[in-house]
Amino acid sequence: MAKIDEILNQEGIDRIAISPYKQYSRGYMEPGNLGTGYVTGLKVDAGTRVKTDDEVLDGIVSYDRAECKNAYMGQINMTTASSFTGVQGHILGYDLLRNPAVDNAKPLFEEDQWDGSKLPIYDGKPLQDTLVEYFGTSDNRRHYPAPGSFIVCANKGVTSYRPKEDRPLRTGESYGVWSAIAISIAKDPVHNSSMFIEDAGTWNTPNEDDLNEFLDRRRRAIALSIAQCGQDANTSFASSWIGFAHVMMKPGEIGNAITVGPYFSIPVDAVPGGSILTPDVDMNIMEQLTLPKWLEKMKYQSIVKDQHIEY
C-alpha cells in the first residue's frame, strides 16, 4: 500500500475504485462499484461533421464525434462535475499506470504562486496518451466506459458552424474550434485536491497559424488562472499539465471541441493479477505498474506508438 493510502485510511478515506463489470469502466457513484474512490483521466479532442439542416442533430453528432475521437468515450450519459480530483482520487498516468514521459518531461514555463513558489507548466500529452492506451480508441477498444453508463466528467465544449456559401459569418459561426484541459497536482494531496480547468472557444479567421499562436498565449492565461484558484483555496500545486486540441472546419462543416476529465472505476480484469475479492490489492497493483509494464502484462500493443494520435 502506498504511504499516502496508509495516511488516508487513518482518516477513513479510501481511494479504491473497482468496477464489477468485465472489461468496462464505469462511472464514479454508479451502484455496485467497489470502494469510494475514483480514477480520473485527461481527454481533449475536436472533431468535425458535415452540417445538415437540423441544428439539434448537428450538435449531437459533432459532439459524439469528438467523444469518440482518440480515447473512446462514445455512448455514455455524461454528467458534469465542477472539476476537482481530491483525496479520494487517482489521476491516470500520474498516480496509476504512471507514464514514464511524466518523469522525463521538461517544463514549458513557470508561473508564480501566491506562496512564493514556482508552478511548472508541462504539456499534458503524457496524461492524454495514458487515457488513450487505457480506454482504447474507437476501432481498438479496451477498458472504455460501459455503453450507456453514467459518467461524471469535468467538461466544457463549443460547437460552431462554418458556412458553406461564400458570405459573411453570422453570429455564432466561425472557422475553427479549440479546447483545452489542465490538471494541477496538489502539493499536499492528503489535505488538498488537485484541480481540473477546462476551456474552449471559437476562432474567427481562416488562419490556423494565428490560432496556434493564440493557443500558446491561452496556455499562459490558463496557468495564471490556476495560480489564482490556488490562492483562493490557500493551496499550491506541484505541477500543472495542460493539453490542447483544435480543428479548422471546411466550408459546410460543423465543428465541436470538447474537454473532458472523466471520473470512473476500473474493471478488475484490467488489473493484471487482480481479484474482485481484494480491491485494495488491485489498486495497489495499478499504482505500482507503469504504463509500459501494464501494456506488456495485458499483452496490448501501444496505440500511441503504433497509430498516429493527434489531439
Binding site: V56, G157, D166, L169, G172, Y175, N204, T205, N207
Partner: peptide
C-alpha cells in the same frame, strides 16, 4: 469573405442565442 477575414477580420456585433444547442 475568407480573404477579407484573413487580412482584416470583421466580427459579428450581435450575440447568437439558440435553445437548440446543449
Amino acid at each position: 469573405f475568407d480573404f477579407v477575414q484573413t487580412l482584416k477580420p470583421t466580427l459579428p456585433l450581435e450575440a447568437n442565442y439558440t435553445n437548440t444547442n446543449r
